[in-house]
Design a binder for these strands. Structure first.
Lengths: 263, 263
DNA sequence: CAGTGGTCTAGACCACGCG
DNA sequence: GCGTGGTCTAGACCACTGC
């Protein structure tokens, strides 16, 4: 395979961003170290300051560095915490990589409100604007104070109306156990919708994201055996801090080998 | 709940980006429509052209608009194709939302090479640099010519060496069936690792991504009953075109309700 | 106070696609 | 040729932090 001349004619800000990325990976600056000031870097690379800033902005959006206004630009530690999609149901709680137990849970708001359109879009049996109980939460690393996750739960009025789920306090036990008790039904099926995107302005603010940094967004729909929705829960994480894990058995007898596929 | 004054003191380029986003959502410009030229927009919003460009760049990274050099900036259709994480094993092939069957498969390269570090990082039983058979693929929408997915498969030498998997041609049937035949073992367990991030320069080029647009990256590890790796497959999609779906049964008896959790 | 990054301007020049 | 977006420059001014 021929190595392409990728980048030979790339714009300056990209070539410089690539070079900075390489120097960081090679350990020229360690996590926590401050990079030279943008004016100094601009001089070193023989660039104007705005173009140099554009190069640094690339690394900032990637999560490789973090800029603190008035202080400097620092190399970030590359730590992508692993999280299982099904941790919410209590399995694998003993796994040391589990996150949420270490995080501080805050309820941003709780009460009735209209079902957002992006939630209704993944449900066949609900309309945007339907009144539901909405609980918005924020999870923060108590050690660093860093916001790690922002999310919300949507519970049908028939289950949550006039209950403690309308109160803005952390629930006494795992959320799904509360809902099971109130609904009188057991969780039976789940469907997750995983999206990567850029954050909304609100998310940028709440999560303290740098401009251009993407987020991972999961909408989790839980239903009872009879198919009725018990709870919809959505979570948004800064993309550079998370890796979502999904383990499952393969059932080869279900295979239908008719179509060639490289996947 | 009090509506925050978010954006009242936000930078101009953000306020203008928000306004453009709103105008697009309200249908002032339909998908396919061309936005006014940046100079015209700059005049309308009483901004300098560079700042106006910065605002447009936000929408471009979000996937809301697409700029064609020398032509103009156009509103993109919001279509997020749904794809099941486990389609590769032939289930749900009848689902009309399944993607890969409609796509054109191209083998970019096939042959032996070292296991990349980011793949070894999710395996307990392999080291970066281990020699494996690597098949790199590109999936393209034949109607539009748009690249929709770039990816690779990594198969242990013991299975794929001296076989047709080292040839850069599309395999005659589903990949996992080929590997099962060659290995003499059945696929039994799978583990997926889902990451959202900004693309590498190579991915930006191959997928034709605008600057700042994120990608979704999945590493799929398939093992036999005895725990040996049969195949590792990774896929990268432009984030704005995909929603990954994961369905699974909930087993409430596995719950361990000891820890309060809002998730 | 000095140094840093964040925003914004004004304008030059180029590359691209189309008529 | 002309209008478009893509890149780059030079510099101003501000906001934030830490000494």
């Amino acid at each position: 395979m021929v190595t392409s001349d990728l980048g030979a004619f790339a714009p300056k800000y990209q070539r410089v961003a690539n070079d900075l990325r390489r120097r960081i990976r090679q350990g020229e600056w360690q996590p926590g170290d401050r990079l030279p000031a943008e004016t100094a870097l601009a001089e070193h690379y023989d660039l104007s300051v705005p173009t140099m800033r554009q190069a640094v902005a690339v690394l900032r959006a990637e999560g490789a560095v973090e800029s603190r206004h008035g202080v400097g630009t620092f190399v970030k530690e590359e730590r992508r915490l692993q999280r299982r999609s099904r941790d919410r149901y209590g399995r694998a709680r003993k796994d040391s990589r589990l996150l949420t137990a270490h995080l501080e849970h805050t309820i941003l708001s709780a009460g009735r409100g209209p079902l957002p359109a992006h939630i209704a879009a993944v449900l066949d049996d609900a309309e945007p604007g339907d009144e539901v109980v909405i609980r918005r939460r924020l999870l923060t690393d108590p050690k660093t104070g860093t916001p790690e996750e922002v999310g919300a739960s949507y519970v049908p009025l028939g289950i949550a109306a006039e209950t403690f789920l309308e109160e803005p306090t952390v629930v006494p036990k795992a959320m799904f156990l509360c809902v099971e008790e109130l609904a009188g039904k057991r969780y039976a099926q789940a469907r997750d919708h995983w999206i990567a995107r850029l954050p909304t302005p609100e998310e940028t603010q709440v999560l303290g994201l740098p401009t251009g940094a993407p987020v991972m967004h999961v909408i989790h729909v839980a239903r009872a055996e009879d198919g009725s929705v018990l709870e919809v829960s959505e979570s948004v994480w800064p993309a550079d801090r998370i890796m979502l894990i999904d383990e499952y058995p393969v059932e080869p007898e279900a295979a239908m080998p008719e179509a060639p596929s490289e996947i």
